[in-house]
Every structure is written in structure tokens, then in C-alpha cells.
């Protein structure tokens, strides 16, 4: 501690310096990662709605972040004017006929940039890049002047669009074929009712009659199988010489075995007192054996024989043992 106190100035200097260097390092990395040191070229676009727009949200191209939204406001024509910038690395991609899309879906939104197909000079700063749903943007898409991939980059929006298309088509189909659908539904309802009746055996159709017949057959089968001399046992063993004698023999053997088991258990019961006596003698025998072993260990010729064991009185005493 004396060393630390002596060099307190140096220690404090180092303590502060390391922290400041670390902070500066992190800020430099942060700046490089977030394009602080690159020039940002401003552009603007016009959307119909600001739904899903957030200040600072990234502008992407093929999954890469190429810029960010700076600000957005509602103008006098009730359109949303969005100011955004593109990093200078990607500036050459901002050519004529480039368009931009605000892709919104229930899980979030993103701004996607599509460059023009022609390799022209980059657009000037503060130029308008039309939105994909604006009249100019629609023309660019129709004339295929922008490099729009076959599949939308925003998978969720594409799925939602497909779902929307399918439901629209389904809706149109239902509207056009309302009478036919009504007939089909009524017919289906009648059929299900008739089927339910038939299953309960209440109807008069072939299924109902079949089910009634089947019920009678099952009843007869039950009667036949319960009688040992009936049809089913005879079918299983027509001569009566194959299955039943074998079963009888097995049963006889089981009876013999159980009789022998009974005799063995009686014998065990009879010899139980003798076994109990032997078990009772074992502790004494073991004690004697231990004494003998101790005697041998003590070598009676040298140490004077087997030591006497002092009996330990029991700690348990009942009230009966007390003197009164």
C-alpha cells in the first residue's frame, strides 16, 4: 500500500488514461461502423402515408444498409415528404430511374432502394427519387427501367400480398357463383342429416338396413360363442381330440405343481422353530468365536489369557423396574 500511496499520481493518471483511451477507441469503432466519417448525400422522396416510417430507419439495397432517413413531414398537398441520405460509398448506384419503396408489414417496415437499369451519372444532391407507388414510379416499374428483383426483398410483404390476392380472388369467385354454392351447401346439409339418420338405424335406405342386419349378426355371434358345445368351439376343434386334451393335460400338470408347492411350504413351516433356534444361537457362537480370536491375539502365554468383558447395563428402564 505504501508503494501505491507513493505513486498515487501515476496510478491515477494511468487509471484515467486507460478509460479515456478505451472510450475514444469505442467511439472511433462506432463512427466507422455507423458511417460517421463518410459524406452523406441527401435526397428526398414522397410517400402517400408515413405509416411505418421512423426517423433514422435504414434505407436498404439488396439487404445492405446504404443510407438512413433523416426526417419526414406532411406537406400542403397532404403528402409525406421524406428526407434521407445515401452513404457516399453507394452514391454511384443512385442513377436516373431509381425508385424507392416503403415496405410495411405487421412485423415492421423498411425502405428499399431499387437503382435504375441504365448506367448513368449519379443523381444530383437533393434530387427526388420517386416512390414505387407514385405515378412516376409506376411508369418506371411498367417500363421495367428499374432493377427490381423478381421476388420482393421483403418476404413478409410478398406473402401478405399473395394472401391478399388469394382472398380477393376467392371473394370474386364466391360472388359470381353464389347460386351454385347455395345449392351445394343445401345438398350437403341434407346428405349429412340422412347419414346421421342412417347411422342411428332410423332411416329406410340401404345403409340403415345393412346396419340393422349387422346388429342381428353380432347378437347371434355372441350367443354362439358363449355355448361351449356350440358351433364356434366345434369349428375350432371339430374332432374334440386335439385342443381340449392338450389344455386338460396342462391344467393337470399345474394342479400337481401347486400340490407339491403346498407340501414344501408346510415342511418349511414345520422346520421354522429349528431355524429360529439356530439363528438365536448364532450371536453367542459369534461372541465365543470373537473371544477365542482375542485370546489368540493376546497370546495367553504372554499377556495372561482372555480379558473379562464388563457387561454394559441397559439404559432403558421401564416403570416396572423401579423400586417402590
Amino acid at each position: 500500500m505504501r508503494f501505491a500511496m507513493k505513486h498515487a499520481d501515476k496510478i491515477v493518471g494511468l487509471f484515467v488514461l486507460v478509460a479515456i483511451l478505451g472510450l475514444v477507441g469505442v467511439i472511433i469503432f462506432l463512427g466507422a461502423n455507423q458511417h460517421w466519417f463518410t459524406r452523406n448525400i441527401p435526397f428526398y422522396t414522397v410517400f402517400r402515408s408515413a405509416k411505418g416510417l421512423v426517423r433514422g430507419m435504414p434505407v436498404t439495397f439488396k439487404g445492405f444498409e446504404i443510407g438512413r432517413v433523416r426526417s419526414f413531414e406532411l406537406d400542403e398537398n397532404n403528402s409525406v415528404v421524406v428526407e434521407f441520405y445515401i452513404y457516399d460509398t453507394y452514391y454511384p448506384k443512385v442513377t436516373a430511374q431509381s425508385i424507392i419503396e416503403l415496405a410495411s408489414n405487421p412485423l415492421g417496415s423498411s425502405i428499399i432502394f431499387y437503382p435504375g437499369k441504365e448506367h448513368t451519372e449519379p443523381l444530383k444532391e437533393h434530387s427526388l427519387i420517386p416512390a414505387i407507388d407514385s405515378s412516376v414510379g409506376k411508369d418506371i416499374v411498367r417500363l421495367k427501367l428499374a432493377a427490381i428483383p423478381a421476388e420482393s426483398e421483403d418476404q413478409i410483404s410478398a406473402i401478405m400480398k399473395n394472401v391478399d390476392d388469394i382472398t380477393s380472388q376467392l371473394d370474386a369467385l364466391v360472388k359470381n357463383n353464389a347460386n351454385e354454392l347455395d345449392t351445394i351447401i343445401k345438398s350437403l346439409s341434407r346428405s349429412t342429416f340422412a347419414l346421421a339418420q342412417a347411422m342411428e338405424g332410423k332411416g329406410s335406405g340401404p345403409i340403415s338396413q345393412t346396419l340393422v342386419g349387422l346388429s342381428g349378426i353380432v347378437k347371434n355371434l355372441n350367443t354362439l360363442t358363449t355355448d361351449m358345445n356350440g358351433l364356434i368351439p366345434k369349428l375350432l376343434d371339430p374332432t374334440g381330440q386335439e385342443v381340449y386334451p392338450a389344455i386338460k393335460k396342462i391344467l393337470d400338470n399345474i394342479q400337481t405343481l401347486s400340490e407339491q408347492l403346498r407340501q414344501f411350504s408346510e415342511f418349511l413351516n414345520g422346520t421354522q422353530p429349528q431355524i429360529a433356534g439356530i439363528l438365536a444361537q448364532i450371536p453367542d457362537i459369534l461372541n465365543k468365536g470373537r473371544d477365542v480370536m482375542e485370546g489368540i491375539a493376546n497370546n495367553p502365554l504372554l499377556s495372561g489369557g482372555i480379558t473379562k468383558e464388563r457387561e454394559q447395563p441397559s439404559t432403558f428402564k421401564s416403570f416396572r423396574d423401579e423400586a417402590f
Binding site: A4, A8, D9, I11, V12, F15, V16
Partner: peptide, 13 residues
């Protein structure tokens, strides 16, 4: 001040 930074800052690191 230096000693305060020493006691409060460095010794608590």
C-alpha cells in the same frame, strides 16, 4: 483531488 480519485476510483475498480 488526486488522492480522492485514488481512494474513490482506483480502489473501487
Amino acid at each position: 483531488l488526486i488522492m480522492q480519485i485514488f481512494f474513490t476510483g482506483f480502489e473501487a475498480i
